[in-house]
Simulated scan of single mutants.
Amino acid sequence: MSRGDSPSVETRRPDRAALIIAVVLAAIAGLIFWDVSRLAGLAGYSQVGPTTVPYAIACCLIVLAIWTAIEGFRGDFAEREPQQLGPVAWIVGGLAAQMLLLNTLGFSIATGVLFAMTARGFGKRQLWLTMPFGIVASFVVWTIFAKVLQLSLPAGPLERLLF
């Protein structure tokens, strides 16, 4: 067997998506480290203070970023299905609608719209059914948080009508 006849070694290319994810994880960890460094004077009398958990989260994110980068360079990630933009657009649109409607229509209706659009993104096509269900479920959540727990959530016409 000559030198040119040897079996070819499969060369793996680095997974660019995994490397981008690793960079984003490291950037978030860096942002947390920077933000927590401004709170360093608040430790008080104990070693455990308001900086402990954010530091732990940032350290975990750094470990995940390194792990993801290693796996990305090795090319060990499973083959991914192509991304479908339609469902993502429905969910992002639902989030945008909720943010825009929250102060005018209140928590229940805005979150009901988010629920219906997210359900549509996951394949449920009956908006006429999911919208009222989402509004009722959101109203129950609003009632528990606003009336029972006395937390402040935006009230709209539905909440003002019933309370």
Rank of each mutant, 00 (worst) to 15 (best):
W34N: 11
Y45R: 03
L114D: 01
V36H: 00
T11Q: 12
E159K: 05
R3H: 13
A119Y: 04
W67S: 14
A65M: 10
G49Q: 03
R80V: 12
V148Y: 01
L161A: 12
V23F: 14
L129M: 09
L151M: 13
V113L: 04
I70V: 15
G93C: 10
R80C: 04
A56W: 15
A155C: 07
L19K: 05
R12F: 07
Q126W: 00
R80P: 02
R38N: 13
F73M: 13
Y55G: 15
N103W: 08
A29W: 01
F139W: 15
S108N: 01
P157C: 00
I144L: 14
P82E: 15
I70K: 02
T130Q: 11
F73L: 12
S2W: 04
G134H: 05
A116Y: 14
N103C: 02
V141N: 06
M1P: 02
M1Q: 06
A65N: 11
W128I: 15
G30P: 06
G49N: 14
Y55L: 15
V136Q: 01
P132R: 01
L64P: 07
P50W: 02
E71V: 10
G41E: 11
Q126H: 08
F33T: 14
P157V: 03
R125P: 07
V36T: 08
A116C: 13
F133P: 00
I32D: 06
R16Y: 08
D15K: 03
P82H: 10
L127K: 07
G123I: 09
I28T: 12
G94T: 12
A116D: 05
L85G: 14
A18R: 03
G123M: 08
F133H: 03
G30E: 09
V92H: 12
V48H: 08
F107Y: 13
Y45S: 08
R3E: 12
T118P: 08
V148W: 11
L149P: 05
M99N: 11
K147S: 11
I28N: 05
L31Y: 01
K147G: 08
A116F: 09
I70N: 03
M117F: 11
I109P: 07
A116K: 12
R3G: 14
A78R: 06
D15V: 04
V136F: 07
I57L: 15
I32M: 05
F73T: 11
A69N: 00
D15H: 04
G106F: 01
K124F: 11
A137D: 11
Q98R: 13
V136N: 02
W142I: 04
A78Y: 06
T68A: 09
F133Y: 06
G156C: 04
I62C: 14
Q83S: 01
F122E: 10
P87Y: 00
P50M: 13
A58F: 05
L101K: 07
I135N: 06
A89G: 15
K147T: 04
C60R: 02
A78F: 11
P132F: 14
L61N: 07
R38Y: 02
A146R: 05
